[in-house]
Design a protein around this nucleic acid. Structure first.
Lengths: 368, 368
DNA sequence: GCATGTAATGAAAACGCTACCAATTTTTCA
DNA sequence: TGAAAAATTGGTAGCGTTTTCATTACATGC
């Protein structure tokens, strides 16, 4: 059931723009006033001429306004306004050998955790005139290396990477370049530069510990995550840590694919059909947990009476389901905000590389 | 329950890089070989010298490889490799008065529809060496105008906006600039340039028509969307169209906030408690519908026997719930892909502005 | 009133690349 | 074999800013 209407609008002229013709032809006498109407985008020189000052001063007006007198500032502002002048960022960046841009590489956008992180960061940076250049590596560190390299050729003011696991090449390039790097979402020692995140391993431990304290003796772990997702793997590892330490039985379901409610349902059904069916299950993602919840309903398995469930991500629906879902809330928005602020500090020349563990919240709701 | 460990790593030197010192001091005699070891990032001239060709040829090597002979191509590749040369995009863009970058403005990233669209587009563009500069306007067209203006100062090769509703200022700036603009996600006549999307109004009509065909006489509409969300409003308008045309009773619940499963539950409860409780409800978002489904369970209202539900967005969980949720699937990924491809064509100088209605799928599942 | 700072301004040289046009080499075709 | 056409290659003037570094204007202290 699909529509297929395709309409061609009027054929516009397209991409190419007329070259700037600011330079007056030599030898040709200029009649009347010297200030001819210019074609093309106005440049700084045009503003300068109109305001009766030098280009240098106009440049200052934009970069360190305080260094320009009140009077002249007003004149420049007026001229810029009149010409609707917009500074050419490319030229500025070239001359200054740095650009007001931050490169960000995320594994995927199709995960609210990264989306929120990015949105928050972008808003913090935008507010100070920095733009965000985005690329997603699809959980591949090889792809990440490519992306980092091509982003670097834009001479960004800083770069943000998700996670702490990068290829040798990425590390080499980044360390050589020496620009501010923030690794977010995961907290580990020995960051390239700065690091803002939390320990995913601790997440797994915390949840397992919670189940253990409840007297559960048979644990379940559903780890459905794309191959490059170290963070999910770490959560699983933490969960196993405690199972081992406390000598608890552990049943696992693992699959190298994108977490979806469907796989969650499948995984749950499979796990619960085993001989030593778990009494409490930790999912690497809330979406999996949601699928499991529905599957439980279909199978007549009661939550949390027969089995406890806990997800990860504290997705929107966690509070609304019946029963509401226990989950772990990563500080995604705050990570984004802090990363942005940290970079801004560095750009101002203040601040030094830091590593910050923002922790996480384990939210226990009705599901366990 | 929160960790708060904060650790400062060793204090690295920071942002400032040593200036390029390629230019040899005048008057100072250069001993030995003329080709001194250069400090700083290598430039095109360095590659040219090492490969024994002119800068022009190296430039061609990167921009139109076919115009360079096989032999020389190999020499240049080798030199570039040896020097680990990376072209300076800023310089290139300045000289060419256009940059290999596409500016994209979305309402929010916290909505899988836009996230997927963006991801797909970004991947198509990346493959051809174009980068994506991202900004989100939070559903505000005033904010959009600001963003467009500042993005424009980066002289992008093209620009992508979500929706067809923009401020006067945005239109003015965009029309003047004349660069390729693609408005995505919504299909309407009279686009600025190109347009790829579908009719949201038709979505509402289609769903209402479906309910009507089923013999439903009392409809319900839950429209929870942020104020600037014209697309959601249009879906609602379409739904009302049919209700009016067919003389069906319509109960509405409207709230100007972000759609979440929680509001969905509230809205559902409120609507079902009214005297003329609807027999079929259309939600402006699947997340709302999910909340409603759980609320129905709590209230003992059977779906679809007592009331039919249909959402929008075809979110991941729609197939897994019990009953599975009817929904409308927007062609988000395809929109992203087509937008990217369209832009690439335009960059190559091929293709003209087009408007494409990609339609949508109304997926009828167990919920109605 | 005169030397001495301090604040404001300006001139011109980079920044690293692309585009235009000219120069050179190679190929094609009678 | 020679001339014309096609394919390669190179020289160099910008692209529109930012940055020294120098200059001018203005206030300060004795």
């Amino acid at each position: 059931m699909r529509q297929g209407k395709i309409a061609l609008t009027s054929c516009k002229t397209g991409i190419t723009k007329a070259r700037n013709e600011n330079a007056s032809k030599k030898g040709e006498p200029v009649k009347g006033q010297v200030k001819q109407l210019q074609s093309g985008r106005p440049k700084m020189a045009d503003v300068a001429r109109m305001a009766g000052v030098s280009v240098t001063t106009v440049s200052r007006f934009y970069n360190e306004p305080d260094a320009v007198s009140e009077k002249i500032r007003a004149r420049i502002a007026e001229a810029a306004q009149a010409l609707s002048y917009v500074p050419n960022v490319m030229a500025g960046s070239l001359a200054a050998t740095r650009s007001k841009m931050v490169a960000v590489v995320v594994p995927t956008l199709n995960n609210s955790v990264f989306a929120l992180m990015l949105e928050e960061m972008s808003s913090v940076l935008n507010r100070r005139g920095y733009q965000v250049m985005l690329a997603s590596n699809d959980y591949s560190i090889e792809r990440e290396e490519e992306l980092v390299k091509s982003l670097l050729s834009w001479s960004p003011a800083g770069i943000v990477l998700v996670g702490r696991h990068h290829s040798r090449g990425t590390l080499k390039v980044l360390l050589e370049d020496g620009l501010p790097v923030v690794e977010v979402g995961e907290y580990l020692d020995g960051a390239i530069d700065s690091n803002i995140g939390f320990s995913h391993r601790d997440v797994g431990r915390r949840v397992a510990r919670h189940f253990a304290n409840l007297g559960v003796s048979r644990l379940g772990l559903v780890l459905v995550a794309l191959p490059g997702d170290r963070r999910a793997a770490d959560r699983g590892a933490g969960f196993r840590d405690i199972a081992r330490e406390d000598g608890l039985h552990l049943e696992e379901f693992t699959a190298p694919e994108r977490a979806s409610s469907k796989v969650g349902a499948t995984a749950f059904g499979e796990l619960m059909s085993r001989a030593d069916a778990p009494q409490a299950i930790f999912f690497s993602n809330d979406m999996l947990c949601l699928g499991a919840l529905f599957e439980a309903g279909r199978l007549g398995i009661r939550v949390p009476d027969d089995v406890r469930l806990c997800g990860y991500g504290d997705f929107d629906f966690a509070t609304t389901t019946s029963p509401s879902l226990s989950s772990v809330r990563p500080p995604d928005r705050e990570i984004g905000r802090r990363a942005g602020e940290l970079l801004l500090e560095r750009f101002r020349g203040e601040g030094a590389p830091v590593s910050i563990d923002l922790g996480f919240e384990h939210i226990v709701r009705a599901s366990g």
